[in-house]
Amino acid sequence: NPNNPDGRIVERKKLLALAEKLRARGGLLVVDEAFMDVGPLGESLAGDVEQGGIVVLRSFGKFFGLAGLRLGFALADAPTVERLEAQFGPWAVAGPALEYGIRALADSGWQAEMRRRLARDAARLDALFGRFGIPVAGGTTLFRYVRLRDAAGLFSGLGERGILLRHFSGRPEVLRAGLPGEGEEWQRLESVLADWSQQREDDA
């Protein structure tokens, strides 16, 4: 929550109601919030874990771009943490990875600026796709969710030109697109989309 790849959000109140039902039966609600750093923070359950019966999973590999650290963490109430520790035992994490994680969480200024930048870039990518008739149906500010009839053609057309989108074999009409990085990458994407669009017109 947010969901990958469509960015769908399950409302916090619905998750809390589900957690209450599970808790009454001795159950546990586990919510993957790996993308919540770019989601609506008011929908996060991170502040609700003390109610019990809730575990929130977070990652440093998405928003913070630190996938190579293989670092994440779970938030839960004290009894649940004790159960997890007893079941999993000691979990070795490298000292440098912990230091990176601590500094990343503490740098609220960087986080705020990155959220603004991602929002701008996501809107820019939506507009660029829109120019070539590619509808954006959702996603987060880290990735965009595209749904179109010729998704396979777009996937192949861009892939042949060195730009990789994520295609889903079980959902052939769906693609997930990451954000370009520097200015040259934006220019390259625009050029490739123009070539793809022209080729479609020529083939029509």
Rank of each mutant, 00 (worst) to 15 (best):
K14Y: 03
L15I: 03
F60M: 13
L66S: 05
W196A: 01
V146Q: 02
F132D: 09
E173F: 08
P79F: 00
A86D: 08
F129S: 03
G65H: 11
V146W: 01
D195G: 08
A19V: 13
G95V: 05
A94P: 08
G89C: 13
A94E: 08
R103T: 12
E99C: 05
Y145K: 13
G153E: 10
G153P: 10
R166N: 06
F155R: 05
V31P: 07
V174Y: 03
L28E: 00
D77W: 04
G170H: 07
R124P: 07
L71E: 02
K14P: 00
P2K: 06
G183A: 13
E185C: 11
W186V: 03
A78W: 14
L15P: 14
G26T: 09
E173D: 14
L165K: 02
D203N: 14
T141G: 09
G133Y: 00
Q199F: 10
R147H: 08
Q111W: 00
E185N: 06
D121K: 01
L28T: 02
L71F: 07
A92V: 08
K13P: 10
F155N: 10
G130T: 11
F63C: 01
E43K: 00
F168L: 03
A19T: 10
D37R: 00
V81G: 02
A204F: 12
L193R: 09
A97E: 04
L28M: 02
G89E: 12
L41P: 15
V38R: 00
A76V: 13
A19P: 15
I54G: 05
L189R: 00
L22G: 05
E160Q: 15
G170V: 13
S169H: 02
A97M: 12
V146A: 00
L45I: 01
R70L: 07
Q111K: 02
V146M: 03
R147F: 08
R149I: 14
D32Q: 11
F88W: 05
H167T: 10
L18P: 06
G39C: 04
R166D: 10
L154W: 15
A119C: 15
F60I: 07
V56P: 10
P5M: 06
E173W: 14
L45M: 03
A137Q: 02
V30Q: 05
V136R: 12
D77Y: 01
Y100C: 03
K62E: 11
P40I: 04
A74G: 15
M36V: 08
G39V: 08
V174E: 14
L154Y: 15
E190K: 04
A86F: 14
D48F: 13
